[in-house]
């Protein structure tokens, strides 16, 4: 039975490799960009001053979409909280505590991992990565905190405050773009700076940091909600 299962797995793996190989073999890159893409590719670096073209598209040209995505994430976390609402959030199941080494290591590593999360979203306009990715790493420190140290000490309040403040600032910067520059979420309310340095690309680093904080807070809220409810069922 076991051998059967494993051989099926192997065959599947082989099949997927074969498919991937076929896809790769028949792949020919398109030589010309379509109109929108050409506009972004040609004008993007000059207009926004961001070294990472994807970022300038996501934050400036498609800034409204990003706002929508963050809002969807907020809705998801709110709905999860609503659906999983229990009478009292605390759990009373007998648990095996983490070992002492795990707790110490978590205390040591949490600041470092947060720093790397911040690094990812602050440099979003220069390197691959950005607000969503950095926010996910920030949220992963919450998982570490949750499974190693404590369950009840983490403040919902702080998370909600962070989330609300960063979301509000995001919209405010967008409106500032309408007043001071060409349109909603235009990044040129600040100077575009030297190409390729940290303080370049106008408001993009600030917007991306806000997105990162918001995403991190929202994902952490989801993790907290799931954790609090899970205790009720076992």
């Amino acid at each position: 039975m076991k051998i059967l299962k494993n051989s099926i797995l192997l065959v599947l793996l082989g099949f997927m490799t074969w498919m991937l190989f076929n896809l790769y073999k028949d792949y020919d890159s398109r030589d010309t960009l379509n109109d929108t893409a050409r506009y972004y590719a040609e004008k993007g670096p000059d207009e926004t001053g961001a070294a990472n073209l994807v970022t300038s598209v996501v934050v400036t040209y498609r800034g409204l979409d990003t706002l929508g995505e963050v809002t969807i994430l907020f809705l998801v976390s709110a709905i999860i909280g609503l659906l999983l609402k229990t009478e009292n959030g605390t759990r009373k199941t007998a648990m095996r505590a983490s070992s002492e080494f795990m707790i110490t290591a978590a205390k040591l590593l949490i600041p470092m991992i947060s720093l790397i999360g911040v690094y990812i979203f602050v440099n979003g306009h220069l390197t691959p990565g950005g607000g969503f990715q950095g926010g996910a790493i920030l949220a992963s420190t919450f998982i570490l905190l949750l499974i190693s140290i404590s369950r009840n000490k983490i403040g919902h309040k702080v998370l909600e405050l962070t989330e609300a403040l960063s979301g509000l600032s995001f919209v405010l910067i967008g409106i500032l773009g309408v007043i001071l520059a060409a349109g909603f979420l235009d990044n040129k309310i600040l100077g575009t700076g030297t190409f390729g340095s940290l303080l370049s690309a106008g408001a993009i680093p600030i917007i991306y940091s806000l997105i990162g904080l918001k995403v991190g807070a929202e994902l952490s809220t989801i993790i907290l909600e799931l954790n609090q409810v899970q205790g009720k069922e076992d």
Binding site: K107, L108, P111, L115, K153
Partner: peptide, 12 residues
């Protein structure tokens, strides 16, 4: 910011 926020309970 990180060292103030995250290290209130740390005793490393």
């Amino acid at each position: 910011a990180i060292s103030m926020l995250m290290c209130r309970h740390c005793t490393v």
